[in-house]
Design a protein around this nucleic acid. Structure first.
Length: 113
DNA sequence: CACTTGACTTATT
DNA sequence: TAATAAGCCAAGT
């Protein structure tokens, strides 16, 4: 308790990302907004970058608001993210998720308080 | 210690 | 409708 500061922002991101069901995807802004700051979406991206320190962060299920695999280049291979998504049943075309609107997993509705 | 970059999003021109 | 500006905050240089 002598640490009232909330550095758990990244931890929150890890939790939410880890809660994404298989075959679904969400956006950085959705997570950030769920945490209370829609404009902190960059921090979610930074959290993903640091997520490499975490073993089971399905970052491939997190894409930008267009459903485009913006972070694909940060995986081992530029096609790794797409392979992972397709491996979960998500259709990806031209680095963009098909039916992203239907696959969109909103933490505010699924994890709504 | 100050400036730049970055897995984004929204608003304005 | 498309392009540009601003906002957010942390880490890297």
């Amino acid at each position: 308790m002598e640490t009232p500061k909330n550095n758990d922002f990244f931890e929150q991101v890890y939790q939410v990302v880890h809660l994404i069901p298989k075959g679904r995807a969400t956006s950085y802004g959705a997570i950030a907004k769920y945490l209370g700051s829609a404009r902190s979406s960059r921090m979610v991206g930074w959290a993903m970058n640091t997520a490499h320190s975490r073993p089971e962060i399905p970052a491939h299920r997190v894409v930008n608001r267009n459903g485009m695999l913006t972070g694909k280049m940060h995986f081992g291979s530029p096609t790794r993210m797409q392979e992972l998504l397709e491996g979960e049943g998500i259709q990806v075309e031209n680095d963009q998720i098909i039916n992203f609107t239907e696959l969109f997993w909103n933490p505010q509705e699924e994890l709504k308080l």
